[in-house]
Every structure is written in structure tokens, then in C-alpha cells.
Write a protein that binds this DNA or RNA. Structure first.
Lengths: 112, 112
DNA sequence: TAGAATGTACGTGGATAGTCGTACAGTTCA
DNA sequence: TGAACTGTACGACTATCCACGTACATTCTA
């Protein structure tokens, strides 16, 4: 099992019941993170470095943490990469229709 | 017509097309503002001071601005009060189903 | 017309977000 | 085993958020 450091053995993922609406909204209120949602909504798992360009690694780590701790994504270790995936089932169970609405709300102006 | 100051004759309300999904999500990512949404969703207009308790007037002004500039609420002058209402039609037109989903996502833990 | 009522403007201070560079830990593979 | 690779940890910096007190503009009313 992949360990991040001796002190923080596991990345924190909230359980389904711990996912808070506010935290999800705040997480998705950032254009970079909203774009990540759109990419991950296609399905499958992506390494951290394969979704966003033009941002430093440490900045990405920050955004992964926001998405992970709000319950939007899951991070799973695989070899030397972390695979990201959308917690679609949990989000749909907790907030039925929310993700569908967000994905269907096409707003090109934000698509940077 | 009510004027706020000589320099800022009108409060800024984005047009329907200018409403950005991110801005709405960020605005509703704060518990106080989410509660305001729930109150206003009942319908009708409320004076600024009739919705939230325990917060200073200037703090409220800050939150009204966030809600107004994101396109969530409308502020209309009436005598010496400003009447707040939800821009339900605009939000429903721009992001069909979003408000419904948010209102039906009951999350008691956030109901402070 | 003077005082009360409503709500904004402005300035301030502390907390949080967002970005980066550097260092480092774990994994893979030549 | 050692170097390359992937991603986090940490510290620093800037910008924005959030809350407040005070001052003020507007409106209503006694």
C-alpha cells in the first residue's frame, strides 16, 4: 500500500455520509477543478499528471486535495502513480442529479 | 430610485447570460448563503435584515453582494429597505434543475 | 424638520485560497 | 543498486474571503 509519509499514511477520503454539499460546491467553484470534473465524468481513471496542463505539480496537489477532501474524487495508488476517478456513485447517492446538472450546464465562457 | 452613493448609482446585477456557473457554486458554498437560498426559495421578497440573525449589518452587506453579483438574488429598492428575491427564472433557464437539486439535497449537518 | 430606521461604503484585521520552487519519499527499471 | 519518474510536503508569497465597527446616505415618520 502506497504511503505518502510516515505521518500521513493515507490520503483522507470522506465516507459517503460525510460528503457535504457546501464542500462540493466550493470545490467545483474553481474552473480548473470544474474542468477536472468534466474530464473524469467521461469515466475511467487518470494519473494526476494527465488531466491538467500548465500548472505546477505542487499546485495540482493542492487541487487534488480539495477535490479529494470534499468527496468529489478518489485517489488510488497504482505503482508510482495515483489514479484519480470521480466518486460518481457516492455523489449521485448523496445529491441525486447534481452531477448531471453540472455537466449539462454548458458554459463555454468557463471552459478555459 | 434608490441610490447607494453618488458614485455607485445602481447595484450590479449580471444579466441572465452573464451568470456563471462557477460564481453560483462559489456563492452557495457558504452555509449562510445556502440558507438564504433555502429561505428565498419559499418565494416572495424579504428585506435584507429579515433573513439572517446574529451577523452584523456590514457582514450581511458582504454576503448580499456575493449573492447579487453571482446572479443568485435580485435586490430591489422599496422605500428605505432593499427587497431580496431569488432569481429563480434566470437560474432555472441558465442551469436547468440546479436549484431544485440543491434544495432537495437535504443536509441537516449544514443547517446551522 | 429632526430623529429613527435601513442598509451601504470604507477601512481593518485575521483566516483561507491559490500559486510556486525546492526538497523528498516511494516506485520502477536499466 | 542507482537513476529517472510521479506525486506529496513544506515554506513563502500574494490575493481574496469573511467578519467587524464606524460613518454616512436615503427614506420614513412623529
Amino acid at each position: 500500500m502506497y504511503a505518502y509519509t510516515r505521518d500521513v499514511p493515507d490520503p483522507h477520503h470522506p465516507t459517503r455520509d460525510q460528503i457535504q454539499l457546501e464542500a462540493v460546491l466550493t470545490a467545483l467553484g474553481h474552473p480548473l477543478r470544474m474542468n477536472v470534473l468534466r474530464v473524469l465524468a467521461e469515466g475511467g481513471e487518470y494519473p494526476c499528471g494527465a488531466i491538467v496542463d500548465g500548472v505546477s505539480k505542487s499546485t495540482l496537489t493542492h487541487h487534488w486535495r480539495v477535490l479529494r477532501e470534499s468527496g468529489v474524487i478518489n485517489q488510488r495508488a497504482s505503482g508510482r502513480t495515483l489514479l484519480l476517478s470521480l466518486r460518481r456513485d457516492d455523489l449521485d447517492a448523496r445529491f441525486p442529479g447534481l452531477i448531471d446538472v453540472l455537466l449539462s450546464s454548458h458554459t463555454p465562457a468557463e471552459a478555459r
